[in-house]
Amino acid sequence: MKFLKRHKQLFSVASIVFVLILIFTKPVYAMHIMEGMLPPYWCIVWFIVSAPFFIYGLYRLYKIVNSEQKNAKIMLALCGAFVFVLSSLKLPSVTGSCSHPTGVGLGTVMFGPGVMSVIGVIVLLFQALLLAHGGLTTLGANEFSMTIVGPIVGFLIYKICRKLKINRSMSIFLCAMLADWSTYITTAFQLAIVFPDPHNGVAAALIKFLGIFAVTQIPLAIAEGLLTVIVYNLVISNDLWKEAALQ
């Protein structure tokens, strides 16, 4: 009971996010690349490309789990739940598709980008099997865009911002927002090379796919950045984690 009272703000945020997933999760075409959308060749390619990052992520996960950092395992679970919940909020976009947050910014700031590839695979597997969100054959492609490219870009942005003496909250906001945007740019590219425009090729298809999701994804990424800042600051202010630990 003492723990619940002490961290009631954190649990309040978690409750709000849980309610949101119940409200907004619905059977629409998700931005995760769906089962059957990629030819077998490209499914294999993205699995091969993602494999080294996943192996490194296992190494980072092992180091974190066996570290003496306070609350490391709890924070790993929190970051995994954050990714699962936010990336399950499928908000309708245009042309029968949808957009959603990625949630990778929180774990990227707390643990660095490496471990997010492992957390991402777990999340994507659960979503594919339980929510029909994404797919098993497209797991490598979805992992690469959301939990490899996104966290790497976000982490680089965060480190650059801190080097430039930009305050913590703004650095985290930019990390989460740009990690989200980079995920959707990567996904658009993955689709464009498989479904090029009949007349103008991959470049025209890329513009088309980016345009489809830009209307909802730009404001959605901004909202994700703000939520990530709120949750991170709650974690730090309640002495659940130390800034820059285990990155």
Rank of each mutant, 00 (worst) to 15 (best):
F111M: 02
L106E: 01
P113Y: 07
A132W: 10
S99E: 02
V109W: 07
L129W: 07
V123I: 09
M110P: 00
P101R: 08
T108C: 11
L106W: 02
T137A: 15
C98P: 01
V94S: 14
G107E: 00
V118G: 03
I119C: 12
Q127T: 07
V121N: 05
P101L: 11
L125E: 00
G96D: 11
V94C: 12
M110S: 05
G120D: 01
P113Q: 09
M110I: 10
T95E: 15
G105S: 04
L131K: 09
G134K: 09
S93P: 04
V118L: 13
M116C: 12
M116K: 07
F126S: 11
L125M: 11
A132F: 14
G134M: 11
G134D: 04
P101S: 10
G96L: 13
G135C: 08
I119L: 15
G105L: 06
I119R: 08
V109R: 05
T108Q: 07
L106A: 06
M116D: 04
F111P: 00
G96A: 15
F126D: 01
V123H: 00
M116G: 05
V121Q: 11
T95V: 15
S117N: 05
G134Q: 06
S97C: 14
V104W: 08
G112W: 05
G103D: 03
V104D: 06
A128M: 10
V109L: 11
L129G: 03
L106T: 00
F126N: 08
G107F: 06
A132N: 15
G105D: 00
G134P: 01
S117I: 09
T102H: 01
G105R: 02
A128R: 04
V118F: 10
T102L: 13
F126K: 09
V118K: 06
L129I: 06
P92T: 09
I122S: 09
G112C: 10
C98L: 10
G103F: 02
L125A: 09
F126G: 11
L125P: 00
L131F: 12
G105N: 03
S93G: 12
G120C: 11
M110V: 05
F111V: 00
Q127W: 06
V121C: 13
V123G: 00
H100L: 08
A132R: 15
M116V: 12
V94E: 11
V121T: 09
G107Q: 03
G103Q: 02
I119G: 08
F126R: 08
L130Y: 08
T137H: 13
P113L: 11
L130S: 06
S117P: 00
G120K: 07
P113C: 12
G135P: 01
V121M: 14
G107V: 03
V104S: 14
L129Q: 03
S93H: 07
T95K: 15
I122M: 14
G103I: 03
I119S: 10
S99P: 00
V115S: 04
G135D: 01
V109H: 05
V118Y: 05
L130R: 06
M116P: 00
F111K: 01
S93W: 05
H100F: 04
V121L: 14
L124V: 04
A132Q: 14
V115T: 04
S97Q: 14
Q127S: 09
L129C: 08
I122G: 06
T95D: 13
A132C: 14
G112E: 02
G120Y: 04
V121D: 05
